[in-house]
Write a protein that binds this DNA or RNA. Sequence first.
DNA 1: TGCCTATTTGCATGATTAGCCAATTATGTG
DNA 2: CACATAATTGGCTAATCATGCAAATAGGCA
Lengths: 108, 108
Amino acid sequence: MSTKTEQLRYEKRASILKALAHPSRLKLVDKLSEADEVCVCDLTEVIGSDMSTVSRHLSQLKNAGIVESEKRGQMVFYRLRVKCLKSLFSCIESVVKCDVNQNMKVLS
Amino acid sequence: MSTKTEQLRYEKRASILKALAHPSRLKLVDKLSEADEVCVCDLTEVIGSDMSTVSRHLSQLKNAGIVESEKRGQMVFYRLRVKCLKSLFSCIESVVKCDVNQNMKVLS
DNA sequence: TGCCTATTTGCATGATTAGCCAATTATGTG
DNA sequence: CACATAATTGGCTAATCATGCAAATAGGCA
């Protein structure tokens, strides 16, 4: 594989990770994983920021290909497009746990 | 779980994802996954940025608990602390692939 | 049509990030 | 000790990001 292609691959992956790398967006993904679809208004309540802010977070997730949206009536419903988030989060969680262990070692 | 704790959990996860969310840092992780340990000087060649820049990328990965380092002589060697990166990347990759499919649909 | 609700977009602001060069620290070697 | 190498840190700039308010868009409904 050419260096150029390789570079593009890293950039693409990074852009997806970046889309996930925010507490509010992680929470959004979490909520969406519990339900089939949720409207912006309900998500806004969950997050507790201005609706415009939530809308922008959602559009970042959408641009990254993590969620999709559908407008029905005046409302817009968001849905997860990806089903593997659980394994991703379990990996992230293992970093967290590993860190805790490390910290305990330091303290003991 | 309290809302406060929940919030902290999202923040912690986000910080780990943020540490990974950069092409150069992904490349560093990739290289480190191929070898047991690599010194900063070698990693600098791979990345092709200034060594100071690479050093800062590495310290971000270290702060996130993704890599660890050991100084031997004048050199500092970095190692992955986490073994599950492969499953994480396969998830990311499935987002990429899903995107490609979507794009093909749009084009056809 | 006129008004209400849901959502997105424009704009301004403050905060964070990435990058390089230069300076500093630490180690090894003559 | 003097010098070279490896790595980190300080300082600066340009770019990107997060956020809220206000305005615009679009869909119901009387």
